[in-house]
Amino acid sequence: MTGILDSFRLDGRVALVTGSSRGLGKAAAIALAEAGADIALLDRGEPAETIAQIEARGRRAHSIRRDLIGASAEDLASVIDEVVVEYGHLDILVNNAGTIRRAPAAEYAVENWRDVLSINLDAVFHLSQAAGGHMLAQGRGRIINVASMLSFQGGILVPAYTASKHAVAGLTKALANEWASSGVTVNAIAPGYMATDNTAAIRADAVREASIVARIPMGRWGDAADLQGAFVFLASDAAAYVTGAIVPVDGGWLVR
């Protein structure tokens, strides 16, 4: 008899994780591997430490190097094809890669707008579209996008990031509506304030950092490990009836 804990296992599954060399992507890749999946890693460089952690858990790791800024739909479709050739199938896509550029909206450089939207939104759609084609054909699949607290709020000095993360939430819902009946679920995780490279500037501002912690009911910044359970859940059969959800993992930030 199969128990509830077995439904969280990912044995025999293949996952592609973008932005996997550090932070949230690295944590997601390691968690999925620990649950039993083989992992493909899409990054600008070689995510050597992530590969080592995956292989230490007895799973396979395959690295694909691409710069997502300006990547074409055809180039990103070739990434999905490479994963399928390497492993035979693709079951899970984690669209984690993202960037942020801070400046007042009235002075925001057009190249910053383009770069942020290219990575945070365009690549998410093109990878989801290509992966979705394979998943729809096999009758199953899990796509997990990384949204943000700024999928719900406006933020300060981050117009492109905010626009992109609102769009990721909307795209998650749109794809979920179209693909649910074919066995493909599309969900997003919305991390709260996490201690990552993207938030280094905020954490270095003593006044801003203190105001943020004061609003978080748990009283601390999140860590990448705090997201691992959510990634495994949404990738697993335990979440078979969950789609179109934007799941906050925020220490209570949104309910304050």
Rank of each mutant, 00 (worst) to 15 (best):
A97M: 14
R60E: 02
N95M: 14
L68H: 05
W113Y: 10
E82R: 01
R59Q: 12
E107H: 08
I100N: 14
I64R: 01
N112D: 15
A77P: 01
A77E: 03
N95Y: 14
N96G: 10
V85E: 15
E111M: 10
S72V: 03
G70C: 07
R102W: 04
I100Q: 15
A106G: 04
A109R: 11
H62I: 00
I69V: 06
R57S: 07
D67P: 00
G58Q: 08
A73G: 14
A73T: 13
L93A: 06
A105F: 02
V79D: 08
I92S: 09
I69K: 01
E82W: 03
R114I: 12
A109F: 10
N112Q: 14
E86Y: 07
D81N: 04
V110G: 06
A103C: 06
E107V: 04
E86N: 09
G70V: 03
G70T: 04
L93K: 05
I80S: 02
R101S: 12
E82T: 01
V83G: 05
D81C: 02
R57Y: 06
A105S: 11
N96C: 15
E107P: 00
I92G: 11
A105I: 12
V85Q: 10
S63L: 07
H62P: 00
E107R: 11
H89T: 04
E107L: 11
I92A: 12
A109M: 10
E111P: 05
P104R: 09
A73N: 09
A105Q: 12
A71V: 02
D91P: 09
G70R: 05
L93W: 13
T99A: 05
G88H: 15
D67T: 01
I92W: 15
G58D: 12
P104W: 06
W113H: 07
A77G: 03
A73P: 05
I64Q: 05
S63E: 03
E82N: 03
A61D: 05
L90D: 13
G88T: 04
Y87V: 01
D67Q: 00
L93M: 14
R114W: 10
D91I: 01
L76A: 06
E74Q: 15
N96E: 15
L76D: 08
R101T: 08
V83M: 08
D91Y: 09
V83C: 05
H89K: 15
Y108D: 13
E111W: 10
A61P: 00
R114E: 15
R101H: 11
H89V: 03
S78W: 01
I69M: 00
N96S: 12
G98N: 13
N95I: 11
Y108C: 09
G58S: 11
L76F: 07
V110E: 15
E82S: 02
Y87K: 01
E111Y: 07
A106S: 07
D81W: 01
G88D: 07
V79R: 00
V79Q: 03
T99D: 11
G98E: 15
R66A: 06
Y87T: 01
A97T: 09
I92H: 14
A97G: 13
A97S: 10
H62S: 04
V83D: 02
V79Y: 02
E82F: 02
S63Q: 04
R101F: 08
N95K: 13
S72G: 12
R59I: 10
N112S: 15
R101E: 13
P104F: 12
N112L: 11
S72Y: 08
G70D: 07
A103M: 07
A61R: 02
V83S: 04
V83T: 05
D75I: 04
